[in-house]
Structure formats: C-alpha cells, structure tokens
Design a protein around this nucleic acid. Structure first.
Lengths: 252, 252
DNA sequence: ACAAAAGTGTTTTTCTTACACCCATGT
DNA sequence: ACATGGGTGTAAGAAAAACACTTTTGT
C-alpha cells in the first residue's frame, strides 16, 4: 500500500488515480439528540444488536453515503430514528469530528458528530432496522458504546455554553411558548435557574430573541396566571451574553 | 457497490467484513495557520503544483494516515509546512469538518479543518514537497482552491469570537510579551481596538490570564515607556467575556 | 522639546443582582 | 382561602465605557 500523498503537493497521479490504493476510511455521522421531557434533559439512544458492543446503548448514527454530506446524513438519520415527518426545521449543528484510530475495532471510522435539539420529543420508533431506541435521562446513560460517552459529554458542554451567548434555547421549545417554558430550558440544561424577573427582562430586551404572539392568545400550564405566548425571533446571537451563575470553578 | 449499512444496526457482516466493499472516502486535515506580522493578520498558504486548481493558492494540509488521528495529522503537517522544530506547544484546535460531495473533483474527500495560531512567524520552507509556501495578509488571499475561502473565513470568525470569551490571545504572542502586544492581537483580529486602560484592567483582573514576569525585566518596542512583561497564565476561559465593540449588525 | 507608548485615576453610565410585591387562575 | 406561576417595580452593587492625566523612554 503506497503512502498517500498530500492532495496539494503530490505530483504522481494527476487526475484519474486509483481511489482504492490506500487503506479506506469510513465516515459516519453520529447524533446527540437532546430534548426536554418532564423537566429533565433526555438523550436519544439506540441499543446495539451486534458486535462490537452488542447490547450496549449508543448514539444514533450511520454511514455517510457516497453522494451526501455529513450534514445530510445526520438529518436523514435523525428522521429515521425519530420518525418525524418534517425534520427540516429542527436545529442541527456540527459538534466536532472524532478520528482516533482505535475508536472502532472493525476498521478506521471517522465520525462527524452533531447535536440536534428537539422541542416535542416523539416516541422513537427504532430506526430503519429493528434496533431498539428510547429516550434516556441525561446522566443515567450507562457506559455507551465506542467513545460515545465523550461525544455526549461534549455535546452537553457545547449546548450549555451556547445558551449563554446564543438564542439557541428556543430550539428546545415548540413553535409558541411561554417565557416560563423558555426559562425552564436554561434551568434544565444548566442545573441552575436564572432569576425569573431578570430573565424576563433580559430576553425581552434582546431584539429578535422572541416575538410576542399578537393575538391575545394565552395559555396556562397547570395552574397559575396564564402566560403570554412568544415565538422564536430571527436573532441567533445574544449580545451581551446571559451568563450562568458561575459555580466557582469556571474561570480557568 | 452495496449500500453501506449503519454501523450500529447492520446485521450482515459481524466482524471481518470487506472494508473495500463501498466507495472509499479520503480524509484530510487542512490548516488555517494564522499569525501576526507587522501588525497585520497573515495566513500560511501553499501554491498548488498540479490539477485541479494548479497554480492556485490553498490552505496547507494533507491526508490523514491510517494510524494517526486528524489532530496528529494536522500537527504533522504544521511541522512540515512551517519547518518549526517544536510544534508541540502551539495552539491547534479543530474548527469543523467539510464534507460536501463535490468539494474535490477527484474523489470523495472529507476535510477536518483546524486553526493554528503562531506567535513568531517563521519563514515557511515549503513543505516536504517542492510546493511554494508563503504568508499572505488576511484579506488579500485571492480565490483559494477548493472551498478553502470558506474554511479560512470560518477560521477567522471563530478566532475573533474566541478572543471574546477565552484567553486565546496569548497564543499569538511569544513566551513573554507586553500588554500592548496582547492588545494589538485584539486590534489586529477584530479590526477595532479595545480601550487601552480598560483593556489593561480587564486582563489583570482576570485571574490566570497573564502572570507578571517577576524580575524587573522590561522591554521597549520602538520608543515609549518600557512595558512590564507578562507570561501566559493557566486560565483558558474568560469570565466575564471581553466583548468587542458591537459594529451594529452583531445582534442577529 | 516633542512624540510615542505605558501606566494610573476618575467619573458616568449601564447592566446585573436581589428582592418585594401584585395579578390571575385552579383546587 | 391558598397555592402556583406570571408579571412589575425598585434599589444596591458591579462592571463597562469614556476620558483626563502622569510617567518614561527615543529622537
């Protein structure tokens, strides 16, 4: 097997060179699909039916097909695993790529990981194959297959950080939501809740974060005063950021 | 060519299956190497000697070898392109992965892109092969090969954003530096300079950002009062962040 | 003497934080 | 009546922004 040459410097095989000349890489898209159920953060997991890691739970994912991007593969997998008809509006974002040589014992697999945020968690229907799938509370995911524990932890870190300086929180909410529900997103992901009156002011003072639903539409959740409804606005960045109460160890 | 099956659900070929059964992917590591020369942001580019994009400039990079991670490949390429003996302490960070099917006309290439920050720009020595390499001022890079314009723009965005909420700026500075030099990093990357007295206070008030060099070591750069020297501290995060003066369009 | 850069001080304004308090609804 | 969550007000404190001023060097 010849050593591959850098694609920008090689001078031996100008155009029609042998694609199969060197050790092949497989590229997969893996998903950390997060949602909030009953006020707790949940992750979508699938049970592996074969070796390696048979019987262990893993993040959903699959091979990137020859004619699709990793993003397209991730969105396709997301649709298959969740059974949602319209997956086009959902928040899907590239997390990072995991490429350690030994991460899959079968062959060289490079995984492009994504985070997906769902508003109303549907019952998972177990993918195209017969694999079992379910929502698992974050933190109660036993040891996962491959390096998926690490990927999941990275996804959680990222989402938590993004809540601080982006308008990402609305991705966890349905089309129309109350500010209380929005605040619960922060509380659920961070573990600590921002002060309610101050949160309200901050959100409303950020242009484009949320837009009021004009009709006197209101809604109650359990009991209490009916809350005004809002829709996600066009803004994506949060300037200045909404910092989480620093649990002492943060600056470092 | 059989359609590949998801690695978590496939049930046909348990372990020793044919690695060469489907369309192979190549995986490369591409680098956006940034540095500051004469007060201006520069990028390391290499000139392509062959098709496609022969004669065009491109980001340095190369194939990930079968037994190394993308990070290792990036660090190896960085050493080769810059000619630096010790590349171990340099800041290298994964940016994102580019996987659009048509990005390389020759075959399916998935690129894991990295940003690297250099303090003292060495004269590039043109890689292992005879490719020409040079520092190009950011903004004066004509159209690059492949999708490298996009990668470079993404890298610049990322670095600019990271200056706000991390201690990344020290990665552009040599081991010992003055606060004026550190401030120039912000000015160079952002295009706008933070207020000098306020910048000073902010940096010094953040524990672990910089540490004074205890000896009365001082140094002048051009003329003016000699400045105290500092070393990069152990902190990586910046809480609260150092926000850049918002050029109106930012919140959105 | 002057320019240029470092370093200190001060004031103004803004934002955050922490509460206290009232409102509307279900039980 | 009371619990529960929504919504408003406000005062103390912290931080950021703006700017004046002194210091120390090279030319």
């Amino acid at each position: 097997m010849p050593a591959p040459r850098a694609h920008d410097t090689g001078g031996t095989a100008p155009e029609g060179y042998d694609k199969y000349a060197f050790e092949p890489f497989a590229v997969t898209a893996d998903l950390a699909v997060l949602t909030i159920r009953d006020g707790a953060l949940h992750v979508l997991l699938v049970e592996r039916g074969q070796q390696p890691y048979a019987g262990r739970w893993a993040l959903p994912g699959g091979f990137v097909l020859p004619d699709e991007s990793a993003e397209a593969a991730a969105r396709r997998e997301l649709a298959e695993e969740t059974g949602l008809a319209d997956v086009s509006g959902l928040h899907l974002e590239q997390l990072r790529t995991y490429s350690e040589p030994g991460r899959d014992p079968r062959m060289r697999v490079v995984s492009v990981a994504f985070t997906a945020l769902l508003p109303n968690p549907p019952e998972p229907r177990g993918g195209g194959d017969a694999a079992q799938a379910r929502w698992v509370p974050y933190g109660e995911t036993g040891p996962l297959a491959f390096d998926h524990d690490r990927i999941l932890a990275d996804a959680h870190d990222r989402v938590g950080a993004q809540l601080e300086y982006t308008c990402l929180a609305t991705a966890f909410c349905p089309a129309e939501f109350t500010l209380g529900e929005l605040r619960q997103v922060y509380e659920t992901v961070w573990g600590t809740a921002p002060d309610r009156p101050n949160f309200r002011r901050k959100v409303l003072a950020t242009p484009g974060f949320v837009e009021p639903v004009p009709g006197a539409a209101r809604l109650t959740r359990g009991r209490g005063k009916p809350a005004a409804l809002y829709r996600a606005g066009p803004a994506t960045a949060l300037h200045p950021p909404l910092l989480r109460p620093a649990p002492e160890g943060r600056p470092s």
